[in-house]
């Protein structure tokens, strides 16, 4: 489903070239749930961004759903993000000034789907995530947990094959951690391919994931399958 081959990602920071990933390869199968683990700055979020086509690789190749996308132009990558990928950001990244349902349905806007249809689809997801009473609240009026669920709903609105979640448990309280884990479990049950980044070695998702890939200093140190 996802194949990363000898990928290097470097950033230019002033005159200094910083390597976030160096010569990394990774294969993730369809319907597999993988945790990318490691300390802050280890390269796990960069890997997630690369898989999500949010940033371009410096060297190497990337396949998504048997299609090599490494050198696709910008508009093709946008089409892939729109059709195949649902991204849950660490900081939620909801749009300010927009209501919850508008945020959730925002990926549908450029598809030409009517407001009625967009609202109906957003409401269905919000109900599944127990957020229907907050549908008309502004994004900044929601609690952290509610924002997280709204961000999850937005990632699912296009029914993507691949779900990418960047530190989904780091900005919510313990009460909501269980809820997010339940959502991920349900998504896994529906056959989604899920890649999650986490800085914790012993993540509460441990019982759920198929594999844990441990990153450090831009390299994969360990790739272990959970029994």
């Amino acid at each position: 489903m996802i194949r990363v081959e000898k990928v290097t990602k470097s950033y230019q920071s002033g005159k200094v070239k910083v390597s976030a990933l160096t010569d990394v390869s990774l294969d993730i199968k369809k319907e597999e749930m993988v945790v990318l683990s490691g300390p802050s700055g280890s390269g796990k979020s960069t890997m997630l961004n690369i898989i999500g086509c949010l940033t371009r690789i410096t060297e190497g190749r990337l396949w998504l759903a048997d299609q090599e996308v490494s050198h696709f132009p910008d508009h093709f990558l946008a089409a892939i993000r729109r059709g195949k990928i649902g991204f849950i950001f660490q900081q939620f990244n909801l749009l300010k000034g927009y209501s919850t349902w508008e945020n959730v349905s925002s990926p549908l806007l450029p598809l030409g789907i009517s407001e009625k249809e967009r609202r109906a689809r957003a409401m269905k997801l919000l109900e599944e995530l127990n957020l229907e009473t907050r549908a008309d609240f502004m994004a900044n009026e929601l609690s952290g947990g509610e924002q997280q669920r709204a961000a999850i709903a937005r990632a699912l609105i296009n029914d993507p094959e691949i779900i990418l979640a960047d530190e989904p448990l780091s900005n919510i309280d313990m009460g909501h951690v269980r809820m997010v884990i339940d959502i991920l479990r349900e998504l896994k049950k529906r056959g989604k391919t899920i890649v999650v980044s986490s800085h914790e070695l012993q993540t509460p998702m441990a019982g759920l994931v198929d594999r844990t890939v441990y990153f450090d200093s831009g390299k994969i140190l360990d790739d272990s399958r959970n029994e």
Partner: peptide, 9 residues
């Protein structure tokens, strides 16, 4: 954010 959600430039 909009680009990440699949919007074209």
């Amino acid at each position: 954010i909009l680009k990440a959600l699949g919007w074209q430039t």
